[in-house]
């Protein structure tokens, strides 16, 4: 068949480095590859936001009222209240700042040094019912950008 054949030495016993390529099977191969890849290609690449870490296998979204929030107070470092107006960052009830959703990343970057152990800090992202999902994901993405990944999503009434 001889698809690839290294040319033999013609003069002085030196082997040629050029190889001959039979174009017909090569084009066939390329065409088959293109066909296969065109059929199997997934044009839209969907990724995921890493899942929220779970403790005890309980769901992260809980009916939160004042009493449960108080009970869980020591379990988290920050409460981030997300409403249509923007975000409010609280540390043990003390308001650290209020920001627009678009400024979330800069806000987290600015306030992160206040956390004793940022990598292990627990953040509770409490979201109002009327906030659109895009905003929730935007704030979550901003938290992930500054390496605050231990986030729990909750609602508030």
């Amino acid at each position: 068949m001889g698809v690839f054949g290294a040319g033999g030495g013609r003069n002085s016993g030196r082997r040629e480095v050029d190889a001959e390529l039979n174009l017909i099977p090569f084009i066939d191969l390329l065409s088959s590859l293109i066909l296969f890849l065109l059929i199997t290609v997934v044009w839209v690449q969907i990724s995921q936001m890493a899942a929220f870490s779970q403790a005890g296998g309980e769901t992260m979204v809980t009916h939160s009222d004042v009493s449960t929030i108080r009970q869980e107070r020591e379990d988290r470092d920050w409460d981030i209240l997300l409403t249509k107006e923007g975000i409010e960052i609280k540390d043990e009830g003390k308001v650290l700042g209020k920001f627009a959703v678009l400024d979330s990343k800069s806000a987290f970057t600015q306030l992160k040094p206040r956390l004793a152990n940022p990598l292990e800090s627990k953040i509770s992202l409490r979201t109002a019912n009327d906030v659109i999902w895009d905003d929730v994901m935007f704030v979550l993405d901003a938290l992930y950008s500054v390496e605050l990944k231990n986030v729990q999503i909750a609602g508030f009434d």
């Binding site: 990724s47 995921q48 899942a51 992260m60 979201t127 906030v131 999902w133 999503i153």
Partner: peptide, 25 residues
């Protein structure tokens, strides 16, 4: 709205799927 997604997440967590992977582009 978050309220709708919250109900879905709550239901799936309650049914034994609490480890959510939220799809994004």
């Amino acid at each position: 709205p978050f309220e709708t997604v919250k109900k879905v997440i709550y239901t799936s967590g309650f049914a034994g799927f609490p480890d959510f992977r939220l799809a994004v582009l």
